Computed example of a mutant assay.
Amino acid sequence: MDEARFNAPPPPPLRAKVPRIALLLPLSGPHAKLGNSLLNAAQLALFHFAGKNFELLPQDTQGTPEGAADAAALAIGDGASLILGPLFSSSVETVAPPARAAGVKVVTFSNDRRVAGDGVFTLGFLPDEQVEHVVRFAFKRGMRRFAVLAPNNSYGASISAALEAAALDLGAEITGAEFYDPLADDFSGAVKTIANYKERRQNLLDQRKELENRQDEIALQALKRLENLQTLGDLPFDALLVAEGGKRLQALAALLPYYDIDPKKTRILGTGQWDADGIGSEPALVGGWFAAPAKKERQNFIQQYTEMYATAPSRLATLAYDATALAAVFVKSDGRFDVSEITAPQGFAGRDGIFRFHPEGYAERGLSIHQVGERNTRIILNAPASFQAAN
């Protein structure tokens, strides 16, 4: 426990019929930039819902589970009737027990559904939901054999499990799974293995040797056709799911054609981590598909945020905006927060499109299917306008 934090000046005294909403974010430490972007977004929502009378109490989690526990204790002690945040699942695990004991609900920004339930709601973008959507889309377009390339961590495990579940539901086949150290500098081993490169390369060398020994006209013509090939033999999958983003995605993508995974023959699939500007600068990703929220409402949010703060928001800032908007609408003047109202099956229209809370506490979203282009991505399947349309 950080005793200095508990000796800080108290917040203003409670005002009658003015509920307090705590906002737990990493406002210092290595994730401070992200945390402050979410804080700005929450304050923007306050501005847009200015007619709603409640106090927002930001608390710094310092980006650690211990800091989150201290922040939760301060928030509960200051009379918060609802907690928004924290951001990381490890922090949610330390915040949830005292919040439950105090009867305070938590709307967290985590994307780990394992921490949801019993008064804890997760608003983050679920990677398994994204996998299910893009795999189902690919299956409907004739792809039956899937493989996955993912980091060797809990995120990669959840991606692999989601692919297995989707394949089982659809009757598709998983023909390969390779995991790599996300902290490594070189991912060539994983890509080489998933590509079955060694065997396919040897097949080519053996075929060339056999044809060279024959020395007839047909053999010479066949040899000529093999001149520009790296390998011989088809890949054992129709689509490859690459569960990565940022610089690691670029590094992995550059290795795909090197080990003869041809994006013109094999569809490359991704997750919401692909939802970033400039992704098409890596040629191997052009034509790839991924599932992510529609961009229209988020673009409006980005414009409003940029006008207010003269800088672009983080990708996750919309979560803080939507959570604060929910609090503004549903927290009663006496601090009550009726769970039945936010678990309404029709859901809500947020800055990332429609979403609703499952009774188990995690957020379901209406997702679009995007295709990567050289300059930008385009939507090839629109997100549903409502959950009734999605069913």
Rank of each mutant, 00 (worst) to 15 (best):
Q346K: 08
P12A: 11
K140I: 00
P58C: 05
Q303D: 10
P58N: 04
A167F: 07
T306D: 09
F387C: 09
I379V: 15
E55A: 11
D352E: 14
D186I: 13
A190I: 02
A383Y: 07
A71F: 03
P345E: 07
G270C: 09
E55M: 15
G287A: 05
D338F: 01
G79Q: 04
R298K: 05
G245V: 12
A294F: 13
G63P: 02
A328I: 04
E364S: 08
N40D: 14
Y321P: 11
T377R: 06
S158E: 14
S386D: 10
F6K: 04
R315G: 13
N213T: 06
P293T: 05
A317C: 11
I83P: 00
A251K: 08
R114Q: 14
L39N: 02
F146H: 10
A312L: 09
Q202D: 06
Q371P: 10
L204N: 01
E199M: 15
A383S: 10
T324P: 04
L367S: 07
A50H: 13
A222L: 09
E3R: 14
A253V: 09
A385S: 11
F357S: 08
E212P: 05
D334W: 10
R144E: 06
P182M: 00
K224H: 10
N382T: 09
D206Q: 14
F139A: 15
I76K: 08
F179M: 13
K140S: 15
S281A: 09
P345V: 03
R141V: 02
A344F: 15
R200Y: 07
P182S: 12
V339T: 12
A222S: 10
D2Q: 11
G67H: 04
I380K: 06
G366P: 08
V372F: 07
K105T: 00
V331I: 05
A239F: 11
D169I: 10
L226Y: 15
H358F: 08
A4R: 13
G35P: 09
L44N: 04
H370Y: 08
L256S: 11
